[in-house]
């Protein structure tokens, strides 16, 4: 009896949460009071600025995610293995940085990019995001639950630190890497403020900016664009969802 009530409540909750998504999908096929795919033809065959923005989003998110992995895996590994004074403090600093709201970090980012002359270039979007501390913190938390015996054993075999990371650490971190890829990709995919503040040229901007400014374009492009916008991240989630369930636990913070 209790189980049935719970199940019903759960299904209702799930429906409520999914409703806006379904509404987005439904509204993309709704045009002037009738069902039609006109919104899609308005978007795909009349709004050519959409395509560069779509590919910009794909490229930015893919590059940021890939390079971030290359940067944070050694970094998290070092945090768990290296011994030096002030390590705890440094890691606390990463946590504090992770907690900083966007409005606080955007200003230093802007100033840093301005001084390096990277405003209004693709690098202005990519570089600061690569060094966002979220991945390091998550990865380090997960690193605590890895088996250090394997790392010790590999250390006897090889002297190269990259070999150790590739053969002993990465396989153990698989699930965590999936999670980080998903979150970082979704985060990059959804960013709006950075492209709006750091970029001037429309040709460099992202699909998220297109959606925010959808009212400027002719036809009912907002909801069709939203549907296309959802697809890549949703596919990524589907791809990783099984692995994520298999265990993503976190040790204590700091």
């Amino acid at each position: 009896m209790k189980k049935i009530v719970f199940t019903v409540v759960m299904i209702i909750a799930a429906v409520i949460f999914i409703l806006p998504v379904i509404a987005t999908l439904a509204l993309s096929f709704w045009n002037g009071g009738e069902v039609s795919a006109e919104g899609y033809s308005d978007l795909l065959f009349n709004c050519f600025v959409f395509y560069p923005m779509f590919w910009n989003s794909v490229i930015y998110a893919a590059v940021i995610t890939a390079v971030q992995l290359v940067v944070i895996i050694p970094c998290a590994f070092a945090f768990s293995q290296a011994k030096f004074k002030g390590k705890g403090l440094l890691f606390t600093f990463y946590i504090v940085l992770m907690m900083m709201p966007l409005q606080v970090t955007v200003l230093p980012n802007y100033i840093g990019l301005r001084d390096l002359g990277l405003l209004n270039t693709a690098w202005g979007i990519i570089l600061p995001m690569i060094f966002s501390p979220f991945g390091v913190v998550v990865m380090h938390q997960y690193m605590k639950s890895t088996d250090s015996a394997i790392i010790e054993a590999t250390r006897l075999e090889t002297n190269s630190i990259f070999r150790i990371i590739l053969t002993a650490v990465v396989p153990q971190l698989r699930v965590c890497i999936f999670a980080v890829v998903l979150f970082v990709f979704a985060d990059c995919w959804n960013m709006v403020e950075q492209p709006m503040l750091f970029l001037n040229d429309d040709s460099l901007k992202t699909m998220s900016v297109f959606i925010v400014n959808a009212a400027d374009y002719t036809g009912h492009v907002l909801f069709p664009a939203s549907v296309i916008f959802i697809v890549p991240v949703f596919l990524l989630y589907l791809f990783f969802s099984d692995s994520l369930e298999k265990g993503l636990t976190f040790g204590e913070i700091s």
């Binding site: 795909l44 065959f45 050519f48 395509y51 779509f54 590919w55 794909v58 296309i228 697809v231 890549p232 596919l235 589907l238 791809f239 099984d242």
Partner: peptide, 22 residues
């Protein structure tokens, strides 16, 4: 996973095709 992968490929292939032909 295979199904998702194939769908992803199709999605990006269609987007690429549209980009070139739209």
């Amino acid at each position: 996973k295979k199904a998702v992968l194939i769908f992803t490929l199709i999605f990006f292939a269609v987007m690429l095709l549209l980009t070139l032909t739209a």
